[in-house]
Write a protein that binds this DNA or RNA. Structure first.
Lengths: 251, 251
DNA sequence: CGCAGTAACTAACATATGTTAGGTATGGTG
DNA sequence: CACCATACCTAACATATGTTAGTTACTGCG
């Protein structure tokens, strides 16, 4: 059985987070994946449901969100090719938020019990996955700051910086250019603003010469100023990963 | 060596999250704790520092926060007796936020390498801790929603509901009465508002007959309405914990 | 007991962002 | 190619929350 490139990508990321053995790697590859394609807007899991599968994103984008009692949506995070979706829910009893396809996407599903068995029998894989979820947490924390304490222009600039760096770190973009597969309404829901205001602020970023946009393609013209307007520091992304005090064995 | 009651509390919580063996419990008790008392406002860890210790809160309250480039503070979470502070940082290279004492507090410090060894040799302890951090994440997500999509009255009501339930679940409060050791400025920093507005909204909650306050003591008068004003659902707290598909062995 | 520092509280005024209500472009589909 | 749905865009107006600037009430300490 040949292995999907996105799975290789995940394995490489895990290796930066914990010193995995060949047995660990084999155990990951041997997971009982089932492959599936989802249309944009399809739900992977809904709030209130018990999590049955954990999905590895093979292509496309997904996002997490919650809806308030007033019917307002808040996007909690956006996920891209090569990321494990829903370790956040898989070890808890009930999903506390929704995970939905942002674009058409391919996933490899792993039944939750198989995932639990894997991490029990392979503690280092467990640690790599744990670190993955800790980095998710770090991003959640930064989003609290973004939404709680920055004005609209900064919020959006910050979001654009984050995507640029995460996409580049994942090898999905380069040269500060990328496809941002989100509507203005979705950008609003990610920043705690309204679509109308996102529109104003997006133009403002253009007028200031920080970015250009053509449809969903974003190009960052002046990274330093965008970064400064967005009060952005990459530290919270922990792009170089996990636990430097334990080095992976040479191979 | 007698064991501190807060450590017993943690162990009991962990047992609801993974089926721990006597060996696991012994390993937790055998951690090289060093005890320390910190004054209110003392820092446990600062953003940018490499994490050296992971602290177990034996008494008192702590909080996490970040400060923006504009100098505005955003509180990210509040922690109470019996919680492990800083597993969020301990498995990453550099702390991406500050952890500070909210009140005078006692902690038991565990050196990070000892903690890492523990979870490698005792995978079930690792899983219990992982689940703890996943619940932290769930709370972070709810705070994104709170700050991003609820108005000031709801935000504060939501926060008060969360504290009531978490304190009660930890056995630190009962009858919807508790000490909330936060100034109005801190409440503002936790909700993304200003102290002036917190003051207005706090009075409004009193006027509406939802709560009373005397100094730092909060009493919830009308839980159902407070809950409804705060758009509060306890699901995200995962109070009954982790992984019900695997039951702890009878003892 | 008085002082100093911190926290609580208030009022008048300012503004960033939301709301409403549309018009215009775009892209997919029969 | 025409239609429909969706996304984008804009203007005028509304408002929740912020800002400034101060007064008052505690609390701990010398």
């Amino acid at each position: 059985m040949d292995i999907h490139p996105a799975i290789g990508r995940v394995i490489r990321r895990f290796e930066t987070r914990a010193p995995l053995t060949d047995l660990d790697l084999a155990a990951i590859r041997a997971l009982p994946f089932t492959y599936r394609t989802l249309d944009a807007a399809a739900y992977l899991i809904r709030e209130g449901e018990p999590p049955e599968n954990c999905a590895l994103l093979l292509s496309g984008f997904a996002y997490r969100h919650k809806v308030t009692g007033e019917g307002e949506r808040q996007i909690l995070s956006v996920h891209m090719t090569g990321e494990f979706l829903d370790m956040q829910n898989s070890f808890l009893d009930v999903a506390d938020h929704n995970v939905q396809a942002l674009t058409r996407m391919e996933v490899a599903l792993v039944p939750v019990p198989a995932l639990r068995r894997l991490v029990e029998t392979h503690p280092l894989v467990g640690r790599a996955m744990w670190i993955d979820t800790l980095i998710d947490s770090a991003i959640f924390r930064e989003w609290i700051v973004n939404v709680g304490r920055r004005d609209a222009l900064s919020r959006l600039a910050h979001l654009l910086c984050e995507f640029a760096l995460r996409l580049e770190a994942a090898g999905l973009a380069a040269d500060r250019r990328y496809e941002l597969p989100m509507t203005q309404e979705q950008l609003a829901d990610a920043t705690g603003l309204t679509a109308v205001h996102i529109n104003r602020v997006l133009k403002e970023l253009g007028r200031l010469g920080l970015i250009t946009r053509d449809k969903r393609a974003v190009e960052i013209i002046d990274w330093d100023r965008l970064r400064s307007v967005g009060d952005f520091s990459a530290r919270y992304l922990h792009i170089d990963g996990g636990t430097p005090t334990v080095l992976a064995p040479a191979r």
